[in-house]
C-alpha cells in the first residue's frame, strides 16, 4: 500500500506533489508530538489534527512519509512549504482521527 492508493481509497486531498510514493509501513495516530517521536515508525503515515510547521519537523525526524490532517483543519502556508522541502505528503481528510485510523487500519492490515 502506498500514499496514492490511500489518497484514492480514503478520498483525501493532497496539498502538494513533492513526495515519494514508496510502500507504507503503517500509521500512527496522535496529537502529541513527543508521543509521535517516541513511537512512530519509519515510512508511517501520521494521523493528527496538529496542523502546523512543527508537525513536519517531527514527521521528518521519525521518517514518516506523510501527514493526514483530520477534520479538514486548515494547513498554514509555512507548513506546506516545509512539507514540500522535506518531501512529506500532506493529506487532508474531512473525517476525524478515529474514522481515518479505522479505515486506514482496514486498508493496511486487511491486505
Amino acid at each position: 500500500m502506498n500514499i496514492s492508493q490511500v489518497i484514492s481509497q480514503l478520498q483525501l486531498q493532497s496539498l502538494h506533489d513533492c513526495w515519494d510514493d514508496g510502500p507504507l509501513s503503517g500509521a500512527y495516530t496522535s496529537d502529541l508530538m513527543s508521543d509521535v517521536m517516541a513511537h512512530a515508525k519509519e515510512a508511517d503515515l501520521l494521523i493528527t489534527i496538529q496542523s502546523h510547521k512543527n508537525t513536519i519537523a517531527v514527521a521528518t525526524l521519525v521518517g514518516a512519509r506523510g501527514v493526514i490532517v483530520c477534520n479538514n483543519r486548515p494547513v498554514p502556508e509555512d507548513m506546506l512549504a516545509a512539507a514540500r522541502q522535506e518531501n512529506i505528503a500532506i493529506l487532508v481528510s474531512r473525517e476525524d482521527q478515529f474514522s481515518v485510523s479505522g479505515r486506514l487500519y482496514n486498508l493496511l492490515r486487511g491486505e
Binding site: D31, L32, M33, S34, M37, A38, Q50, N54, T55
Partner: peptide, 15 residues
C-alpha cells in the same frame, strides 16, 4: 494545544 508540553520531553531524551 500545539502538541507539545505533555511532559515527555526529558523522559524521551533520557530514553
Amino acid at each position: 494545544s500545539l502538541g507539545f508540553g505533555a511532559g515527555m520531553g526529558l523522559p524521551n531524551t533520557q530514553r
